[in-house]
Design a protein around this nucleic acid. Structure first.
Lengths: 330, 330
DNA sequence: CAATATCGCTTAACCGGTTAAGTAAACAAA
DNA sequence: TTTGTTTACTTAACCGGTTAAGCGATATTG
């Protein structure tokens, strides 16, 4: 079933059929009678346009590329979910690829997307993504999600890392904690830096001196031993620890287990505060304070920003949408 | 940069350029000199074919559609990861969509994929997927992952639900358990039925009568209260319970928390056995026996099966690949 | 030396849409 | 009656690839 099939079956031209079926029948003054014939024929024969042909012709594919670090990490798969849902609801289809945080792979996947003529790309960029300029100079539309690349003009959707961290740590202080550790990873990433800044500012505003022994960066979160060594060292050096601020949810469970194994029960997480959450925290650590990122919003806004850029071209350089976290202070 | 651009720049025809760049230069006896000129020009000007045009012309898009229930559930996102990785490695791009287990939405997403001319679809089908016949009769290639539709001829990749369950429950029996509960959900799904069959067979082979009070189906896994009510009732009716077989990993954490809250520590999960795992089980329940599905394999085999069907058409009707689980008996 | 084969390309149709430009017929106004 | 306008279309080019068929020039063969 193609336009030509319909055209020859009804004895009209391809153009007529195309206009009728793309809703331009009236403006191109096709008679009501012909429009009816075409529409009915298309409906009864279940015609649907070949989107490849349409995309080729229009130079727009109604397709976006989503390039994330990983799909096994619930954080990224939630972004994927949000992006897919939003895109779907506005008639776009998502092509998905994972970079595994490998900058070269990322660059090559961007190429693939380009050749497939996606209308734009949403990505959680890796450090030092050097393909960005080439892509945008060639007219590619791009939106960063979760993290911006410092010094870049690309529109992005991020959360208020500094402010939310500040509020989490301030809350711990208000509850009476004064020896609050900060447990982090990949502390050079722009988001982690901002969270650390919030931690530091909260302590300073409360007149508590920042003790660098309390700030712990663990190189590999997925190496349980590394996490435990860091925790052991922390507890040895600061035995009167009374609070922990986790810059990321992935550090919480390994810590929980390590404490539980040593008989130091985390008391439902009172005295703990964490950036972002996992479903199991509700039941495992009901008293932990959490700054919850709305990933649903993050993804949806990223799509909106991208589509605005694609369809209207009205996104100004340097646009950054900053979402606030939902504060669950306990 | 298009074929025509190269052609006119070098004073040759589009056909020549197309043949050279698609590797048919020798078989179409284009002179080495011309081939070199074309290839060098293409390389220095960074030419890459427009995949929309190529797909339209070839009638093959090197694109597959992945239609899963959800992206927030780690099980499905792992399938997505595996499929994306495998597809990528063989030069295919994945379009992704989520049905949220809604059969109508599923059908409409299949339509979308069709119009976009994917070469085939991999899906974890919902119950009563009535679009299947229409899709395959129209020449669509399809592979089911994780669950087959009973009575359907569609190639599928599944795991040995019955056998692995049998081995898990047998292992608990060997360790001395005799009052083993089966905790399940959605027990009418084909996979769940098979797991239940394995449980029953293990008990029968050991000469233990099947006690229906021990078999518990919880309607909504995400409703913590429902899970807890079922557990309370179970413990009331069978206080001397000494083992639990979970037909799915999602039931484990709610149970863990409920037990922990009542001071019944699960002792690292000794006496528990579970179908499939979550990363946190390693640290939370190190003694639980697990039949671990290799989702990496599941996804990869699904892609392989689909590509075989697309590229060679040599997949016979009713092909079912059954993967064995990795048994982690403790 | 004419007939044939081989080489190295080109031409043009096709995939299935979109759309600018053109045209024949009907009707209205001068 | 001639000119102009509107109506309701058609023609044909284009998007950027692929590929069957054709064609002139040189090389080989009888």
């Amino acid at each position: 079933m193609s336009l030509s099939d319909i055209a020859s079956a009804l004895g009209v031209s391809k153009a007529t059929v195309s206009w009728v079926l793309s809703g331009k029948g009236d403006s191109r003054r096709i008679s009501q009678a012909t429009q009816k014939r075409v529409k009915e024929y298309a409906a009864t024969h279940n015609y649907h346009p070949n989107m490849l042909a349409r995309s080729l012709s229009l130079g727009r594919s109604k397709t976006i590329g989503l390039l994330i670090s990983s799909l096994s990490d619930p954080f990224y798969s939630s972004i994927a979910k949000a992006v897919v849902n939003r895109a779907e609801s506005v008639g776009y289809t998502v092509m998905i690829a994972t970079s595994e945080s490998d900058c070269n792979k990322e660059a090559s996947l961007v190429e693939t997307f380009s050749h497939r003529k996606v209308d734009g790309i949403i990505t959680t960029p890796t450090e030092g993504a050097d393909w960005v300029d080439g892509f945008t100079n060639a007219g590619g539309r791009l939106v960063f999600a979760d993290r911006a690349v410092p010094g870049s003009d690309i529109p992005s959707v991020v959360v208020d890392n500094e402010q939310s961290s500040y509020r989490l740590v301030s809350h711990l202080i208000e509850k009476g904690c004064s020896k609050i550790a900060m447990f982090t990873t990949a502390h050079n990433l722009v988001n982690m830096k901002a969270r650390q800044a919030g931690y530091v500012r909260a302590l300073e505003d409360a007149g508590i001196p920042v003790d660098t022994r309390l700030i712990r960066d663990v190189a590999s979160v997925y190496n349980q031993k590394m996490v435990e060594d860091e925790l052991d060292d922390l507890l040895r050096q600061v035995p009167d620890l009374d609070g922990i601020f986790f810059t990321t949810h992935v550090l919480v469970l390994p810590t929980y287990v390590h404490f539980a194994n040593r008989g130091i029960m985390p008391q439902g997480g009172a005295g703990w505060a964490c950036f972002h959450s996992l479903p199991e925290f509700d039941i495992l650590l009901p008293k932990m304070s959490i700054a919850r990122m709305s990933i649903e919003q993050l993804g949806a806004r990223a799509v909106d920003l991208l589509l605005e850029s694609i369809e209207n071209g009205t996104v100004s350089l340097g646009t950054t949408v900053t979402l606030s976290c939902e504060m669950m202070l306990k």
